[in-house]
Amino acid sequence: MQGVVKVNSALNMRSGPGSNYGVIGTLRNNDKVEIIKEVDGWYEIRFNGKVGYASKSYITIVN
Rank of each mutant, 00 (worst) to 15 (best):
M1P: 06
M1C: 05
M1I: 15
M1R: 10
M1A: 11
M1V: 14
M1Y: 15
Q2H: 12
Q2K: 11
Q2W: 14
Q2G: 08
Q2D: 09
Q2C: 04
G3Y: 03
G3V: 04
G3W: 03
G3P: 02
G3E: 01
G3C: 03
V4A: 06
V4I: 15
V4S: 07
V5K: 01
V5Y: 01
V5R: 00
V5N: 01
V5F: 01
K6E: 13
K6C: 04
K6H: 15
K6D: 06
K6Q: 14
K6R: 11
V7H: 08
V7A: 09
V7T: 13
V7L: 05
N8A: 07
N8C: 05
S9R: 07
S9V: 11
S9W: 08
S9K: 07
A10G: 14
A10L: 14
A10R: 14
A10E: 14
A10S: 12
A10P: 15
L11G: 04
L11V: 09
L11C: 05
L11F: 07
N12P: 15
N12A: 10
N12I: 09
N12Y: 14
M13L: 11
M13V: 12
M13R: 00
M13P: 02
M13W: 08
M13H: 02
M13G: 01
R14I: 07
R14D: 01
R14Y: 14
S15V: 09
S15F: 08
S15D: 15
G16F: 02
G16L: 02
G16K: 03
G16S: 03
G16C: 03
P17V: 02
P17H: 02
P17Y: 02
P17T: 02
P17N: 02
G18K: 03
G18H: 05
G18D: 06
G18I: 00
G18S: 08
S19P: 15
S19Q: 11
S19D: 13
N20S: 14
N20I: 11
N20D: 12
N20K: 15
N20W: 12
N20T: 12
Y21R: 03
Y21E: 03
Y21K: 02
Y21A: 04
Y21P: 00
G22I: 13
G22V: 11
G22Y: 09
V23C: 04
V23Y: 05
V23I: 15
V23P: 07
V23E: 05
V23N: 04
I24Q: 04
I24T: 11
I24K: 04
I24V: 13
I24W: 02
G25L: 09
G25S: 10
G25E: 12
T26C: 05
T26Q: 08
T26H: 13
T26N: 08
T26R: 07
T26S: 10
L27T: 02
L27I: 08
L27P: 01
L27V: 10
L27R: 01
L27N: 00
L27D: 00
L27F: 03
R28K: 12
R28M: 14
R28A: 10
R28W: 13
R28G: 07
R28C: 05
R28S: 14
N29H: 11
N29Q: 07
N29K: 08
N29L: 06
N29W: 06
N29T: 06
N30H: 08
N30W: 08
N30M: 13
N30C: 05
D31N: 08
D31F: 05
D31G: 03
D31I: 04
D31W: 05
D31T: 14
D31Q: 07
D31Y: 05
K32N: 15
K32R: 11
K32V: 15
K32L: 11
V33H: 01
V33D: 00
V33S: 00
V33M: 04
E34G: 06
E34F: 12
E34Y: 11
E34W: 11
I35D: 00
I35L: 06
I35S: 01
I35F: 04
I35E: 00
I36V: 11
I36M: 09
I36N: 07
I36T: 11
I36P: 01
K37G: 08
K37V: 10
K37I: 10
K37W: 05
K37Y: 07
K37L: 09
E38H: 06
E38L: 09
E38M: 06
V39Q: 09
V39G: 04
V39H: 07
V39C: 04
V39P: 00
D40Y: 07
D40S: 14
D40V: 07
G41V: 07
G41R: 06
G41K: 07
W42N: 02
W42V: 01
W42G: 00
Y43V: 05
Y43A: 03
Y43N: 01
Y43H: 02
Y43R: 01
E44A: 12
E44D: 03
E44N: 11
E44V: 05
E44C: 05
I45T: 03
I45W: 00
I45Q: 00
I45S: 01
R46Q: 12
R46I: 06
R46H: 14
R46E: 13
R46C: 05
R46F: 11
R46S: 09
F47G: 05
N48S: 11
N48I: 09
N48M: 11
N48A: 13
G49V: 08
G49Y: 11
G49P: 03
K50Y: 07
K50E: 09
K50W: 08
K50D: 14
V51I: 14
V51R: 10
V51T: 15
G52W: 01
G52F: 02
G52C: 03
G52H: 01
Y53R: 00
Y53G: 00
A54E: 01
A54R: 00
A54W: 00
A54V: 12
S55R: 09
S55V: 13
S55K: 12
S55T: 12
K56A: 13
K56S: 09
K56Y: 05
K56D: 04
K56L: 08
K56F: 05
S57K: 12
S57A: 10
S57I: 15
S57W: 08
S57R: 15
Y58T: 06
Y58A: 11
Y58M: 09
Y58L: 07
Y58S: 08
Y58H: 08
I59L: 05
I59K: 00
I59S: 01
I59P: 00
I59D: 00
T60I: 14
T60L: 10
T60D: 15
T60Y: 10
T60N: 13
T60R: 09
T60A: 14
I61C: 04
I61D: 05
I61T: 07
I61F: 06
I61V: 11
I61Y: 11
V62N: 06
V62A: 07
V62S: 12
V62K: 08
N63F: 04
N63I: 13
N63H: 12
N63S: 14
